[in-house]
Design a protein around this nucleic acid. Sequence first.
DNA 1: AAGCTCGTCAACCGCGAGGCT
DNA 2: TAGCCTCGCGGTTGACGAGCT
Length: 273
Amino acid sequence: MGKGRAPCCDKTKVKRGPWSQDEDLKLISFIHKFGHENWRSLPKQAGLLRCGKSCRLRWINYLRPDVKRGNFSADEEETIIKLHQSFGNKWSKIASKLPGRTDNEIKNVWHTYLKKRLPQSLAEPTSKGSLNEEETSQESSPNASSMSFAGSNISSKEDDAQISQTFEYSQAYSEFTGMLQEVDKPELLEIPFDLSPDIWSFIDGSDSFQQPENSLMTSRTLQDSDEVEKWFKHLESELGLEENDYQQQKQGTGDVEESTSSSLLESYELLIH
DNA sequence: AAGCTCGTCAACCGCGAGGCT
DNA sequence: TAGCCTCGCGGTTGACGAGCT
């Protein structure tokens, strides 16, 4: 380890607190275009006054397309309780067994709700060391980085075995596994309706992204105009926008842009959930 | 209606792990 | 091998809304 800890960012120069819709859009569209190879440099390249950690958290916990929102089902709650018995406060571990759920979300649910539902004895994990050393060493596979969602890495075989023992409903578990494999496919990151770069420029209201030098993302090929048309037709129906509005936005008046950016974000959320 | 308390959840913080030079 | 850097994790905080007095 190095001496001292370099601050992750200059806290006087970054924005903190809740994210605005505009920031969300910038982050979404940047990641859609270029991926998230380097969280530290991402905010600068995306034109965000945020620290990389903040961007990463926002993406993982809220913005990524496969994140499942809304109340936890009884099955999910049951699963969390059982997994907590096995793993203790290994929230990312637990999250990896619940497709679309994030460690943060599970942690919150546990502390605010599930823990209180259980008798004291059950609210504590069965043993501190239930997650053995082998498992721990296998946890952070470096190659999980490029598309590693906090909640969607495929588990090791040892984990699988343990989980299978933990679950009585092994069938449900195998369904989970199948879903996880799906979720781990990078292409599922894609936002519905494959959009052309032009559209993304329009959505975030600028062409100001700095192309990362070593971006892994291949540049998107221009989609045929049918796709674009489909997208706008969909937006129009979702948002009740007139085609005129689109023309105005292309010319770019501030107010219209702002309201549209929020509408588009809503639309995006509608589409992915 | 106003003030207070409590619950929820998004976001922040600090640390350890591990890769790279 | 040491130092540096980034990422991911888990604990904690704080804003905000709902319910209660």
